[in-house]
């Protein structure tokens, strides 16, 4: 599987500067880059030095809406050229979105296209945040809030323009997305491993990343982090008892059907009745879910099911109640004695 990173961030937040620095790193020498510019004249391309043809610029519109088909086609063509040996065998893909992009449709395309999902794995969403302008941007532009909420990594740029520690901004970003580590970067200089390796599905990084985003429980345990931006809330849901696979399927289906538009990100590690030794890792963006990835073993002694939600106004209590009712219903119908789920208080 070839990892694909999505680099997003509001206009002027330093995406291209970051990308330019990252691509100079030897570890990223074999990286294919797709840049989407909003407008007819692409400038970002000229700002990034690349040495081969594994560089595609989409200028037909905003990647998140009008050129989603172009993205799928472009990635398909890149893979074909790689297979044919007409370009260097790239080992990673980075997609830089426009500053106005909603990342969700891009993730949907990567997760659901049958050809792409066979060969490409979403390695994470990286969102740049301009430390100088972020408060104003987040207050005015819902797209910027969504970019932050959906991130696996938040890269804080332009910190050198701010006097002192931007503690208030960091707290705000943590409230919006407690699961995403915040990486301060000056003039784009960052170690690639801190920025890009945030995926769940790469065999080498599964366990560490699971541990990392589950660290969000430090913020979400027992109470929801709540922000005024579009009513975005983040929280963790726990269950002590294993969950039936059928209940999980019903749960995801019901979430998607009734609350998909407001379900910004869901990540979870689950103790499944049918697979007690191998936990399932799930990842969803709105109504689209990646099939469970099955870890070889539990990453720690903690075998509770833990789900991290970032939502727009969906109450945690509704999610917990729904999961409880569905699990009880399935347990009852399978003729098993009821195992009471005990969400940690």
């Amino acid at each position: 599987m070839i990892p694909v990173s999505v680099l997003t961030g509001f206009l002027g937040s330093g995406k291209t500067t970051l990308l330019a620095h990252l691509l100079r790193h030897p570890a990223l020498a074999r990286t294919a880059v797709i840049i989407n510019e909003f407008g007819e004249i692409g400038l970002d391309h000229d700002l990034i030095e690349t040495s081969d043809e594994s560089f595609v610029e989409l200028t037909t519109g905003c990647l998140c809406c009008t050129v989603r088909g172009d993205l799928v086609r472009t990635l398909g063509e890149l893979l074909s050229r790689r297979d044919a040996g007409s370009i260097a065998p790239f080992e990673r893909v980075v997609i830089e979105t426009t500053g106005l992009a909603d990342p969700a449709p891009i993730l949907h395309a990567l997760m659901t296209d049958p050809v792409l999902s066979d060969r490409l794995a979403l390695a994470g969403v990286v969102t740049t945040v301009d430390a100088f302008h972020a408060f104003d941007t987040l207050a005015r532009h819902p797209a910027a809030v969504k970019q932050v909420a959906m991130a696996d990594r938040l890269v804080l740029t332009k910190g050198d323009l701010v006097e002192g520690e931007p503690a208030e901004l960091k707290a705000e970003l943590c409230r919006l997305n407690p699961a995403a580590p915040l990486v301060p970067v000056v003039h784009g200089a960052a170690a690639p491993e801190l920025i890009l390796d945030s995926g769940l599905y790469d065999a080498g990084s599964k366990a560490p990343d699971v541990a990392r985003w589950l660290a969000a429980e430090a913020h979400g345990h027992g109470h929801a982090a709540h922000d005024h931006h579009e009513d975005i809330v983040s929280f963790c849901v726990y269950r002590e008892a294993p969950i039936h696979a059928v209940a999980l399927a019903l749960f995801l289906e019901t979430l998607a059907e009734h609350a998909g538009a407001d379900l910004l990100r869901v990540k979870g590690i689950l103790n499944i009745v049918e697979s007690p030794e191998r936990p399932a890792v799930i990842h969803g963006v709105q109504h689209v879910f990646h099939p469970p990835a099955w870890l070889d073993r539990w990453p720690s002694a903690d075998r509770r099911s833990r789900l991290v939600f970032i939502t727009r106004g969906i109450p945690r209590s509704w999610i917990e109640r729904l999961l409880d009712l569905l699990e009880h219903e399935v347990a009852e119908r399978s003729g098993e004695p009821l195992r009471q789920g005990e969400p940690a208080a």
């Binding site: 659901t112 066979d118 399927a249 191998r278 109504h287 879910f289 990646h290 099939p291």
Partner: peptide, 12 residues
């Protein structure tokens, strides 16, 4: 809106 699952296996 119906759930969409990426096209891969759903069992261990």
């Amino acid at each position: 809106v119906r759930l969409r699952l990426a096209p891969r296996g759903v069992l261990p």
